[in-house]
Design a protein around this nucleic acid. Structure first.
Lengths: 65, 65
DNA sequence: ACTATACGTAAAGTGTACTTTACATGATGA
DNA sequence: TCATCATGTAAAGTACACTTTACGTATAGT
């Protein structure tokens, strides 16, 4: 399955956060953030839920099928 | 990573849907539904987004980290 | 008794999310 | 010119989401 929308990078930049800061906050490596932002991988559900918490938004605001 | 909450079964039953109906609607097998409802597996993000669409709710209503 | 329906388990295979490590590049500033 | 910061690529390994197939069981209807 693929995603239609992935606004992770957009949200991260709007929140003036580096990839490393975000990685630390959600508990993954920087490479994982890079891979997701660049569309190499789709995040797992728990990771997507953590992103939404960090950005105080809904999962659906970040990702769409 | 683990989920704190998984209300898939609850939502499915409240919507009077069988596991097979739900499986068909989101495009997976019945075994996948069973495994997720019984906590064997955490759904992928695209699948979680589809569940939320079917039940007209937010991903966060169904699953919590 | 027989059949269909809904739910469940088991096991082997495939694809991919995520990790770890290492190296490369452009921008910024001392 | 040199160092630092932020971003990116590459590759090998591990864990697990999901599929497929087959079998088991309880319930309800005829």
């Amino acid at each position: 399955m693929k995603l239609k929308t992935n606004k992770l990078k957009e949200f991260r930049e709007n929140n003036e956060m580096t990839q490393e800061e975000l990685a630390d906050r959600v508990g993954v490596t920087r490479q994982t953030i890079i891979s997701i932002e660049n569309g190499k991988y789709i995040p797992s559900l728990p990771l997507a839920l953590k992103f939404a918490k960090v950005f105080k938004c809904k999962v659906e605001d970040l990702f769409e099928v």
